[in-house]
Simulated scan of single mutants.
Amino acid sequence: MLYPLLSILGVAAGMTTLLFGFGGGFFAVPLLYALLIAGHGADAPIGQQAMQIAVATSAAVMIFSSALATWRHHRSGSLRWDLIGQLAPAIALGAIVGAYAALQLDGTWLRWLFIGYLVLTLLDSWLRPGFVSDAGAVLRPMSRAGSALVGLPIGALAALLGVGGSVMTVPLMRRRGASMLTATAMANPLSLPMALSASLVYAMLPSTGEPLGIGFVGLIDLYAAAALALGAWLGMQLASPLVGRIADSLHARAYLVLLGTVLLVMLCAGH
């Protein structure tokens, strides 16, 4: 039942990737973590590294889902490649640091870091002006130095938690005057360098412990990744007609509601 269920939930991940720039990580990480614990037990080798496996597998799936969503948004003209080019190198470098740090952390700590980050993001977006309100201004560019200073922590934190950069890049672009369509569209290409760098680290430098078994490359569960990717592709086909047709303020509120849902799933996954 593990892989069919992942494919079904992958549909939701694909839809949110295209519409909200999530890259699938906010669905894949808590879902896969909970399923690995339920299927193998917390004391089994896979159960002991369930959070790291979930994060690593999520990063691998993001290579596929973010690339496909990037292509679709590029064709619709929603991307600002000049800003993407400034942020992407720093994000890729930060992702290497974040992925390596994840291999050194206990899974429980990693889970609570994930939860804490979601809480802070939700509070900041709801309480600080500039996210929920309709952005009518022109997207303001960033300096090269500013892009590097912002990109490094975005890449590191995204790779550490396996969530992609959308939770940081969307609020950043939003407060710089971007519409939700532009902000969420740009989250996908900005997740790609993180996903590529992090996946390489997770595949080449697995944490110490007993072998995880057939179907694993390092900490990446290839079977789970394939099931999620298949569902994500279908989800994007279903979501395509909605791109650009959601009111800006509704789009922003829906983004935050989805983050809150993932927070609840992650809180319940440990019980």
Rank of each mutant, 00 (worst) to 15 (best):
Y3K: 05
I8D: 00
G10P: 08
G10V: 04
G14L: 08
L18W: 10
L19V: 08
G21Q: 00
G23S: 05
G23A: 10
G23Y: 02
F26T: 14
L31E: 00
L32I: 10
L35P: 03
L36R: 02
L36S: 08
I37F: 01
A38F: 08
G39Q: 11
A42N: 04
D43S: 15
I46K: 13
I46S: 08
Q48S: 08
Q48R: 15
A54S: 15
A54M: 06
A54N: 04
A54I: 09
A56F: 09
A59D: 04
V61N: 13
A69I: 06
W71M: 13
R72E: 08
G77E: 12
W81M: 13
W81S: 09
D82Q: 12
I84Y: 05
G85M: 06
G85K: 12
A88W: 12
A90G: 04
A90T: 07
I91G: 03
L93E: 07
I96N: 01
V97N: 04
G98C: 06
A99Q: 04
A102R: 07
Q104H: 14
W109N: 04
W109C: 00
R111K: 15
L113S: 03
L113V: 05
L120G: 05
T121P: 00
L127P: 01
G130C: 10
F131A: 07
S133C: 02
D134F: 11
A135K: 06
G136P: 02
V138F: 01
V138K: 12
P141S: 06
R144P: 02
R144E: 01
A145M: 12
A145I: 11
S147F: 03
A148V: 14
A148E: 04
A148K: 03
L152T: 05
A156I: 06
L157Q: 02
L157A: 13
V167H: 05
M168E: 02
T169S: 14
L172P: 11
M173S: 09
R174I: 01
R174G: 12
S179Q: 03
N188H: 03
P193E: 08
M194Q: 10
A195S: 14
A195N: 08
L196E: 01
A198D: 01
V201Y: 10
A203F: 09
L205I: 03
S207R: 14
T208G: 12
G209E: 08
E210C: 02
L212V: 07
G213K: 09
G213R: 07
L219P: 00
I220F: 10
I220M: 09
L222V: 13
A224K: 04
A225F: 11
A227Y: 09
A229V: 14
A232M: 15
W233T: 13
W233D: 01
L234A: 14
L234M: 13
G235Q: 07
G235L: 00
M236F: 07
A239D: 03
S240A: 15
P241L: 04
R245Q: 14
A247S: 01
S249E: 14
S249M: 11
R253C: 00
Y255E: 07
L259A: 09
L259S: 03
G260H: 05
L264A: 14
M266E: 12
G270N: 14
